[in-house]
């Protein structure tokens, strides 16, 4: 009997952020605001610095943070209308037309990555899905002057993000939340 096995490749987008290269210049933050027209006073990505140690032996870690596009996304499971959803490529998005602004997703996010857009819907990083669909990198990745941000398909073992994760020590934020985030920080 002849059997034919077909494996369909399913894209699973993720991001790698190299904390060893980031200088905290905020270019990613400004690029995001320009690209997505984020209103004044709000931000979809941001720089966080953590200083550890005992003077004079101090170390500083600089991270460019945003929505972690979790595989087990609590913002999606609590959404009462289906506005928060995960695309076939693993990107967590909000359908503005379905959002009531109930804020359950904001409360459910362990990363506090969401906010209420002044127009009344829950807003957050989209991995610049409109650019990704055209084969482009997210705006933050494309402008990073130190190349500390990388974007790609985590299901492709030959992609840059897969290689970086495989070959380097990394961490994710709040692994104890069990959300399986897809934003990896090289440390």
């Amino acid at each position: 009997m002849n059997t034919q096995t077909r494996t369909e490749h399913r894209i699973r987008y993720g991001m790698v952020m190299d904390t060893r290269k980031c200088v905290g210049c905020n270019a990613c933050v400004l690029a995001c605001k320009n690209e997505n027209g984020t209103p004044h006073g709000f931000t979809r990505d941001w720089i966080t610095t953590t200083t550890r140690g005992r003077f004079p032996k101090l170390s500083m870690e600089i991270r460019s943070e945003r929505c972690n596009h979790c595989e087990n996304a609590p913002c999606v499971t609590v959404c009462p209308t289906g506005a928060s959803h995960i695309t076939d490529t693993g990107i967590v998005l909000v359908d503005h037309d379905k959002c009531t602004g109930c804020k359950a997703c904001i409360a459910a996010c362990p990363y506090d990555a969401r906010f209420i857009h002044p127009a009344g819907y829950a807003d957050k990083c989209t991995f610049c899905n409109h650019r990704v669909e055209q084969g482009l990198d997210p705006a933050c990745v494309s402008v990073c002057p130190t190349e500390s941000l990388h974007f790609g398909d985590l299901n492709d073992p030959d992609s840059e993000v897969s290689r970086l994760v495989a070959e380097n020590e990394f961490k994710v934020l709040h692994p104890e939340a069990g959300t399986r985030p897809k934003l990896f920080f090289l440390v």
Binding site: V29, G41, I47, T48, T50, T51, R114
Partner: peptide, 17 residues
């Protein structure tokens, strides 16, 4: 003997921070 761990975030979203 104290070890410092200080995190400063650049995020200031209304209702969140």
């Amino acid at each position: 003997d104290t070890t410092l761990i200080e995190t400063v975030s650049g995020r200031h979203n209304p209702m969140i921070d």
